[in-house]
């Protein structure tokens, strides 16, 4: 477990051995996920405005855009937290359960919008 960590220095010196790959990989994972959500949102907008813009379609379209922005906000906050260079003694902050839940809620709400559009 403590492969890269020097004895007696706690996690602090470990940051030197692993200078930023883990936070960077996590950051890129967030970017990939943002990209996936963008694809889903674009498909949602296309589906909602397909065959003329009805009032209901516009409402669902706006809702999907809001959900996409919500997801983008969570990802942006997390990416910024991971990108801020931690000092030698500090470690990157752990993902808050609220952020994870917010990202999942956006995804679920998008699926509900999709179900409304499909039926």
């Amino acid at each position: 477990m403590t492969d890269g960590l020097d004895d007696g220095a706690g996690g602090g010196q470990g940051a030197v051995r692993d200078p930023g790959l883990q936070p960077e990989r996590t950051r890129l994972a967030w970017r990939r996920t943002t990209l996936s959500s963008t694809v889903a949102a674009v498909l949602a907008v296309r589906a909602s405005l397909h065959g003329g813009a009805s009032p209901a379609g516009i409402v669902v379209c706006a809702l999907c855009c809001v959900l996409w922005l919500g997801f983008l906000r969570v990802a942006h906050l997390r990416i910024r937290a991971l990108a801020s260079e931690p000092g030698p003694a500090r470690v990157p902050p752990v993902l808050a359960a609220r952020q994870a839940a917010a990202a999942v809620l956006c995804t679920v709400a998008l699926a509900v919008c999709a179900a409304v559009l499909v039926v």
């Binding site: 996920t33 996936s36 694809v39 889903a40 999942v104 699926a111």
Partner: peptide
Amino acid sequence: LAWLRTALALIGGGF
């Protein structure tokens, strides 16, 4: 995040 991407891909597939 990888599972979340899988979920988003499934939702995109539904669309």
